[in-house]
């Protein structure tokens, strides 16, 4: 009667320990993955929020641009983008175009994105322009 139960208990102890480390590993992986807090990467956020004006590929030709009298910035323009510092880019996204003496058509996004998401978007812009600030 006790035999199978003892075996089960033994197996449970060793596999339980393994399970514990697996969970610990998974938690560590999740918490260090960028954007994990919200489940959204900068690329996902760009595709959802920024692409409506800046375009899916970041070249400035989003679906909203036809009626705009000021065209959105081309994020793939290495020369233009390298003239802007990371801090200015972050300010433009967070506080909107007016905060950096640009168009009001660029709205402030600080109520939409967390600080981490804003940082990640600046990094994503550097990937799009293949440049540094």
């Amino acid at each position: 009667m006790n035999g199978p139960f003892r075996l089960f208990r033994h197996t449970f102890r060793s596999s339980g320990l393994a399970l514990f480390f697996c969970v610990l590993g998974a938690v560590a992986l999740i918490t260090t993955t960028p954007g994990a807090a919200t489940g959204a990467t900068a690329k996902d956020n760009y595709r959802t929020y920024c692409a409506q004006c800046h375009g899916v590929n970041g070249a400035g030709g989003g679906v909203n641009t036809e009626s705009m009298n000021v065209q959105p910035r081309d994020h793939t323009d290495a020369e233009g983008m390298s003239a802007i510092s990371d801090a200015q880019l972050r300010k433009a996204i967070s506080e909107g175009g007016l905060a950096v003496s640009k168009s009001v058509l660029m709205p402030p996004w600080r109520s939409t994105f967390s600080d981490k998401e804003l940082d990640a978007l600046v990094e994503h812009l550097r990937v799009l322009c293949k440049c540094s600030g």
């Binding site: 959802t48 929020y49 409506q52 909107g96 709205p107 402030p108 996004w109 600080r110 109520s111 939409t112």
Partner: peptide, 8 residues
Amino acid sequence: KSFMPNKE
């Protein structure tokens, strides 16, 4: 998560 920003 709306893509309408808060224009403050």
